[in-house]
Design a protein around this nucleic acid. Structure first.
Lengths: 192, 192
DNA sequence: GTCTATAGTGCGATAGAC
DNA sequence: GTCTATCGCACTATAGAC
């Protein structure tokens, strides 16, 4: 006989999304989530430093994919080429099967400013890591930061479109379209 | 005889910055700030919905300056021209005299992730409002969002540079330089 | 202005896995 | 023995309700 069931962490995450969807983030207490997963409140906070964090697992991996992706193209390529490569790798993380789950998660976040704050902080972290990767490839400031932030902007815009009702294209294709739009826009006289 | 000194709100803000600098954000309680301003904790939370908010006064005005700035150029101009106009107006909000105060505030924010989250949310709000203003001027999605987000990125990068040790140029000039860098970036083969 | 729920922390105890 | 996941209890501060 086991003292506790395995996978406490993922049970907490699943329970959290369900409860947040059913009754809202603020109306759901950490104790409720824990109970719903067969654990105690104290254990919830052992796994997640705060209540919001339960929705943001896997961010380190997401970030690393961007960083590694930027290391793909040969040295000397333009910053946006490196960013484009990173975006392609990041898009691979979200195949069709993940679309519906992503929609649920996004709905929870959209309904609560505190969760939006956390998401923005995570994205800013990815952008900072990507900028550092670009600097390692010889891109100077402020270009590195501009390119990295632009890349994350492209990703989030594309991701939102990917989650939209009726959107059928794979994420990589949407990312490509948005990136093309950005370069058009930034070219002097672009997209009047 | 007055029942209470005037300017409670700004006294709270001043006290908050001083205490946050001296002992850190988390180590400072709302009660301490209130006491330091000769008020009660309850009054603090009457003025500011949460502890972080005491550092983010005046955001509505900041946002409105961006929106109004984008309404300046004649209709039919390219999105980045509208954004450039908005950036110029926003830069005017920060003359030389505000540089030192801005440095202190930025130091407090840089030292605490919770404050960074709030700042990012505020900036996202400005970007969303600017994007809406661009759409009103006939810019379609996703260009409106891309242009607006890029504008805010340019502003924050420039603002950071403006606060750097040894930087002497006025903010508007730094903004112009960073914006020029962004357009260079998007040119094919640009800025390798 | 008071009262209260909840987030989040610190510390110690327990129990299984290795 | 060590390591790790769990629980239990006491505690503070935030923030909202009354």
């Amino acid at each position: 006989m086991v003292r506790w069931e395995p996978g406490g962490r993922s049970r907490l995450q699943t329970a959290a999304v369900e409860l947040f969807l059913a009754q809202g983030f603020e109306q759901t207490t950490a104790a409720q989530i824990a109970e719903s997963a067969g654990l105690t409140e104290r254990t919830f906070f052992r796994h997640f430093t705060d209540k919001r964090e339960v929705l943001f697992e896997g961010q380190e991996h997401f970030q690393q994919v961007f960083v590694d992706g930027a290391a793909g193209p040969p040295r000397g390529e333009a910053p946006l080429v490196l960013v484009s490569a990173a975006l392609a790798r990041a898009a691979d993380l979200f195949p069709q099967e993940r679309r519906e789950g992503a929609r649920l998660r996004q709905r929870v976040i959209a309904a609560n400013p505190a969760l939006q704050e956390r998401e923005l902080l995570k994205l800013a972290g990815v952008a900072a890591a990507l900028a550092a990767a670009l600097r390692e490839r010889g891109v100077h400031e402020p270009s590195a930061t501009l390119a990295a932030e632009s890349g994350l902007t492209v990703f989030t815009v594309a991701f939102g479109q990917w989650l939209a009702e009726g959107e059928e294209r794979p994420l990589e294709q949407v990312v490509g379209a948005v990136l093309a739009e950005l370069t058009t826009l930034a070219r002097p006289g672009g997209n009047a």
